[in-house]
């Protein structure tokens, strides 16, 4: 009969099971510790710990998890290979978290320092100038009032269009950051155009079908330019 190995050592006999029966008071002790730690987390959350609250809560939860895994799940007395499976999994969870947060935490840096480079790579060297909103312009009264009712509708349509451009801009990653403010400005620009002359209407209409970041981008200066 094959020899049995338990935790790296040869077992006295394979029919002698390696079942480790823990004494009752160990279980009761662990149970008590878990209850005490639960009360502790709730009490700690009442105290205002500021930024230390999350780490403290996580440490307490990890201690509780350690009790459950080590004693209730018998990992402390189990085959080492089960520990390997478990902690190996945790290692990969750690890698998953680490790389994701490395990405998230360095994204701002990339857009600030290399944002323009990315734009040039995608769109050529002609970086469009920052659109400057013209305030107080395009209020000429007179026939503008007559057009107001007619203009109100397309101008309203331009707004959701600009909103639609936002998620689309997310897809066009490098351009996204450039496009967002522009798309946002498209809406007020269209509003300004409201009392303005007929020319504003085609501009607002152009903003409406905007499905990508780029057309929305282009619509912005046009909507503004309409006097």
């Amino acid at each position: 009969m094959a020899k049995g190995y338990i935790r790296g050592r040869e077992a006295a006999g394979v029919h002698e099971t390696h079942h480790h029966v823990m004494p009752l008071r160990t279980y009761i002790g662990v149970f008590g510790a878990l209850l005490v730690l639960t009360v502790l987390t709730v009490l700690v959350s009442e105290a205002d710990l500021g930024s230390a609250a999350l780490p403290v809560a996580m440490v307490v939860a990890t201690i509780k998890a350690g009790f459950v895994i080590g004693f209730f799940m018998h990992l402390k007395y189990d085959t080492r290979f089960h520990s390997f499976v478990f902690f190996g999994t945790l290692l990969f969870v750690g890698i998953f978290f680490l790389i994701t947060f490395l990405d998230i935490n360095t994204r701002g840096m990339i857009t600030k320092e290399w944002g323009n480079t990315a734009w040039v790579l995608d769109h050529g060297v002609n970086v469009p100038p920052e659109p400057v909103p013209h305030e107080g312009e395009a209020h000429e009264g007179g026939d503008a009032a007559a057009h107001e009712a007619a203009e109100a509708k397309p101008a309203d349509e331009a707004k959701p269009a600009a909103d639609e451009a936002k998620p689309a801009a997310d897809e066009a990653k490098p351009a996204a950051d450039e496009a967002k403010p522009a798309a946002d400005e498209a809406a007020p620009a269209a509003d300004e155009a409201k009392p303005a002359a007929d020319e504003a209407a085609p501009a607002a209409d152009e903003a409406a079908p905007a499905e990508e970041a780029k057309p929305a981008d282009e619509a912005a200066p046009e909507g503004e330019g309409a006097p």
């Binding site: 987390t41 959350s45 205002d48 710990l49 500021g50 609250a53 999350l54 809560a57 307490v60």
Partner: peptide, 9 residues
């Protein structure tokens, strides 16, 4: 889940 969702500060 409990501290993260219910107790976060």
């Amino acid at each position: 889940l409990f501290p993260l969702l219910y107790l976060v500060k």
